[in-house]
Write a protein that binds this DNA or RNA. Structure first.
Length: 399
RNA sequence: GGGGAGGUAGCGAAGCGGCCAAACGCAACAGACUGUAAAUCUGUCGCCCCUCGGGCUUCGAAGGUUCGAAUCCUUCCCUCCCCA
């Protein structure tokens, strides 16, 4: 890879690069760069949006750089003043250790565990002492702190800002000093904190780190940011089939965004994929690749077969939730059946589904008002919800 | 402390005595279409009986006026804005 290609690869998808010249110069040093990325010690439940940053770490690993996965167990006590959560309950050491393990399980699907250094900033921040902390605080000034939007807004609004809140960016900055970071990565919301690190490093006779920020990923709806609460997310621990299906249901436009932020392909490779003008094939390749990242190639293949089976051939999936009907539960009016087994939230809703001809039994539309009988059979609701209905006590001889 | 505005279905927002289970938009769900989608079109979108249709409970809370209230009155709770 030429220096230009390396630069393009590493900055692919990034929002801020502070500064581009700085990064080029660091890359030109020809040595492995120390790349630091900080994480809260809170319990991670990662979705693809979080993996944008993690994948960026991998890109540095790919090019032979030294990547430090930093768990902010000390800074976690301070609590980043992002405004939202007012008081964060302090985590115990056991909590933090457990959370770190959970991180590993999820993050090492992408990162190379051998190449990844995991550090805890309590190691050096606890050792810093009051004197060290005061020296650290002396490297910055209030005016610059107030450049942070959150602080300025509160200051101007007369809302309180605790002095300890200023210590968070400083402590984070000191991490970079201690680790002699060449590069720090973070989400766009971290830009200020990352730059504080850059700013104070010269006071410790270190060259300023380069700051890169990764964007927030749009969710599967293509509009809102990916988030659990909006339901537009793809979780990294999600089963292969649903992961694949969700990814295939994104819009063609969004697919290229995902290509940029969720794959290791270079910008040129993505461009040539796009130039093929085979959006369906490209989307399947994307989904297959992502499923493979988290579940392995075999699972990805199986998920794809399954998807073809259900969505292209319109057949029932291999595995589907089983609805067990107690003795005497059949025959039963269809709408009542759906509501009783929680396949629809209410009988009214079930009735609507039936009227819309969305409910099928073994592939044949169930008419509104019809009765269901003669289990076992496969019941489907809409294009993607399938259930195997069985009578209690009689188990399926096949499965 | 003084003055003003407002709380309507998942969200936004109309309605301001009967034609209101409540316009409209978004989201959601379903159907059609398609290369899966997206886009588009159509339908649905409180609960219950369910075929039409019918019944029941909703419009911050509790009372009241009225043949009839989301709409009027009283009290209470909450939110926002301005002045001090």
């Amino acid at each position: 890879m030429t220096p230009d290609q390396a630069f393009a690869y590493l900055t692919k998808g990034c929002v801020d690069v502070v500064t581009a010249e700085g990064l080029r110069a660091k890359l030109a040093l020809g040595r492995a760069l120390t790349v630091k990325v900080g994480f809260d010690p809170t319990a991670p439940d990662l979705h693809l949006g979080h993996t944008v940053l993690i994948r960026k770490m991998k890109h540095f690993q790919d090019l032979g750089h030294r990547v430090i996965f930093l768990i902010g167990d000390f800074t976690g006590m301070i609590g980043d003043p992002t405004g939202r959560s007012k008081t964060r309950p302090p985590l115990s050491l056991e909590d933090i250790a457990r959370n770190a393990e959970t991180y590993k399980a999820q993050v090492f699907k992408i990162l190379d565990p051998v190449k990844t250094e995991i550090r805890f900033n309590r190691e050096w921040l606890a050792a810093l002492g009051s004197e060290g902390f005061i020296r650290l605080a002396a490297t910055y000034n209030v005016a610059r702190m107030l450049e942070r939007r959150d602080f300025r807004q509160r200051y101007e609004a007369g809302a309180p800002i605790s002095v300890h809140e200023f210590l968070y960016p400083l402590a984070q900055a000191y991490d970079s000093v201690f680790l002699e970071a060449d590069v720090e990565l973070g989400g766009t919301d971290q830009l200020f904190n990352l730059n504080v690190g850059r700013d104070i490093m010269p006071a410790y006779d270190l060259p300023p780190q380069v700051v890169l920020t990764t964007p927030l990923l749009e969710g599967t709806d293509g509009v809102e940011k990916m988030s659990k609460s909006l339901g537009n997310y793809v979780g990294v621990t999600e089963p292969p089939e649903s992961m694949y299906a969700k990814l295939l249901s994104i819009s063609d436009e969004l697919m290229w965004r995902y290509y940029t932020l969720l794959t290791d392909l270079t910008p040129e490779q993505i461009e040539s994929e796009r130039a093929r003008a085979q959006p369906m094939a490209s989307k399947m390749a994307l989904a297959r690749g992502l499923v493979a990242d988290f579940h392995g190639a075999d699972a990805a293949r199986t998920a794809e077969e399954e998807w073809r089976r259900v969505h292209q051939q319109k057949r029932a999936p291999q595995d589907m939730p089983v609805v067990r009907v107690p003795a005497g539960g059949l025959p039963c009016k269809a709408h009542e059946f759906l509501a009783r087994h929680a396949l629809a939230p209410s009988k009214s809703e079930a009735m609507r589904l039936l009227r819309a001809r969305a409910v099928k039994r073994d592939g044949a539309v169930v008419e509104a008002g019809a009765e269901l009988d003669g289990a076992p059979f496969v019941l489907s609701i809409g294009p993607s919800r399938f259930f195997r209905v069985e009578l209690e006590g009689k188990s399926d001889p096949q499965a």
